[in-house]
Simulated assay, not measured.
Amino acid sequence: FATRLAPQSLLPEGEEAFPLEALPLLEEPGVALAAEITRWPQVVAGEEGLLEGILRAHLLGRRAEAHGAGASYAKLAALAAAGLDADHEALTAEEVLNRLRLGFWTMLRHSSLRPDLPALLEGLPLPPSPRLLLTTDGAAPSFYAREGFPGLLRRVSAWAGPIEALRLATLNPATFLALDGLLGGLAPGRLADFLLLEAPDAFAPLAVYVGGELVAREGRLLEPLPAPPWRKASLGFVRAPFGDPDRYLLGSAPVLRLENAVITRQTREASEGVAAFLLDPPGAGPGRSPG
Results as ranks from 00 to 15, higher is better:
residue 4 R to D: 10
residue 6 A to W: 05
residue 8 Q to T: 09
residue 14 G to T: 05
residue 19 P to I: 07
residue 25 L to F: 15
residue 34 A to H: 11
residue 38 T to Q: 00
residue 38 T to C: 08
residue 39 R to H: 15
residue 41 P to H: 09
residue 44 V to W: 07
residue 47 E to T: 03
residue 60 L to W: 05
residue 62 R to W: 07
residue 64 A to D: 05
residue 66 A to L: 03
residue 71 A to H: 03
residue 73 Y to W: 12
residue 82 A to H: 09
residue 83 G to S: 10
residue 83 G to D: 10
residue 84 L to Q: 08
residue 88 H to V: 06
residue 88 H to C: 05
residue 90 A to L: 12
residue 90 A to E: 11
residue 92 T to Q: 11
residue 92 T to E: 11
residue 94 E to H: 04
residue 98 N to Y: 10
residue 103 G to L: 00
residue 107 M to V: 14
residue 108 L to A: 07
residue 108 L to D: 08
residue 109 R to A: 06
residue 109 R to Y: 04
residue 111 S to C: 06
residue 111 S to G: 15
residue 112 S to I: 09
residue 115 P to V: 09
residue 119 A to V: 02
residue 121 L to S: 07
residue 129 S to C: 09
residue 131 R to T: 01
residue 134 L to C: 07
residue 140 A to G: 07
residue 141 P to Q: 12
residue 142 S to V: 14
residue 143 F to Y: 15
residue 145 A to T: 03
residue 147 E to H: 13
residue 147 E to T: 06
residue 153 L to R: 05
residue 153 L to P: 05
residue 153 L to T: 03
residue 156 V to L: 13
residue 158 A to N: 09
residue 162 P to K: 07
residue 162 P to Q: 07
residue 170 T to E: 08
residue 171 L to M: 08
residue 179 L to T: 10
residue 179 L to R: 15
residue 183 L to E: 08
residue 185 G to F: 11
residue 185 G to D: 14
residue 185 G to S: 15
residue 191 L to N: 02
residue 196 L to Q: 01
residue 197 L to T: 01
residue 199 A to D: 05
residue 203 F to W: 01
residue 204 A to T: 05
residue 206 L to D: 01
residue 207 A to Y: 00
residue 208 V to P: 01
residue 216 A to G: 00
residue 221 L to N: 00
residue 223 E to S: 02
residue 224 P to W: 00
residue 225 L to E: 03
residue 228 P to M: 00
residue 229 P to N: 04
residue 236 G to L: 03
residue 246 D to N: 13
residue 246 D to A: 15
residue 246 D to I: 00
residue 249 L to R: 14
residue 252 S to C: 06
residue 257 R to Q: 12
residue 262 V to D: 02
residue 263 I to A: 08
residue 267 T to F: 11
residue 277 F to A: 11
residue 280 D to H: 13
residue 280 D to C: 04
residue 283 G to H: 02
residue 289 S to V: 14
residue 289 S to R: 14
